[in-house]
């Protein structure tokens, strides 16, 4: 089935829009910075890191294209560790926090194994992405359970960490399948199909960044539950 040219153009614009939209949560984080709890400050740092990685990936693709994917593999590990730390600061059940402490090095070890042994450095590490999605969606669900157990937050849609967790659940459930098959798309060298796949990524990115922006917006409008460091 051929893909219409307008759809490809739309996909390109959408990808650019999602890359620009990240400035909205970043700006919001900068504005609210004095009122942000540790977890949201970390989220803001993660967004800065994402932008830095985009730049590094673009430069690497230009000058050392062979190592381009390695940048994204490093990003996946760091991104996961960022979210692990965010949930470590947010979750209060000691068992869940211990799980994060144990899972973080294990995940990093598996990701390195995937990079250097299982799938290699020159393709997208689907195994790592699937594991990352499972772990982060799991942590987000644990936060939902914490909210339901404590019932301290009356309006969940105004709770910053609920919005962040919703973004995490939507982003990783929306992209996990794409990452499972991404190597097939990349090896097929089919630009149109690739663009459509990136469209999926752009759409969930747009949702994710919008929810992050909302989370920063509500950060100083509602007292946060105490966080543990």
């Amino acid at each position: 089935m051929p893909i219409s040219p307008w759809l490809i153009t739309f996909a390109e614009y959408l990808e650019r829009a999602s890359n620009i939209l990240v400035l909205v949560p970043l700006g919001m984080a900068g504005w609210r910075w004095p009122h942000l709890p540790s977890a949201l400050r970390l989220l803001a740092c993660y967004l800065v890191f994402t932008e830095a990685t985009l730049l590094a990936a673009a430069l690497t693709e230009m000058y050392w294209p062979r190592w381009h994917l390695l940048v994204w593999q490093a990003f996946t590990i760091t991104e996961t560790l960022f979210f692990f730390r965010i949930y470590y600061l947010t979750l209060r059940v000691p068992l869940w926090r211990r799980f994060i402490v144990v899972a973080a090095p294990l995940f990093a070890a598996f990701a390195l194994l995937d990079t250097f042994y299982l799938e290699g450095m020159h393709q997208v590490n689907a195994f790592t992405h699937v594991l990352q999605s499972a772990l982060l969606i799991g942590l987000a669900l644990l936060y939902f359970e914490q909210l339901l157990n404590e019932l301290e937050v009356v309006r969940l849609e105004h709770d910053p960490l609920f919005l962040v967790s919703t973004a995490v659940v939507l982003y990783f459930s929306g992209t996990v399948l794409m990452y499972v098959f991404i190597n097939h798309f990349l090896t097929a060298k089919d630009y149109a199909s690739n663009q459509v796949v990136y469209t999926i990524n752009s759409i969930v990115n747009l949702i994710q960044y919008s929810l992050f922006a909302l989370a920063f917006w509500y950060a100083d409008r509602k007292p946060q539950a105490p966080v543990h460091s």
Partner: peptide
């Protein structure tokens, strides 16, 4: 069009809907 595209295009919204449902 890549043969894997259609399943991904169909399954992703389903997963997103499931996530939204949660």
């Amino acid at each position: 069009m890549n043969g894997w595209l259609l399943p991904v295009m169909l399954a992703t919204p389903v997963l997103l809907l499931l996530a939204l449902g949660i």
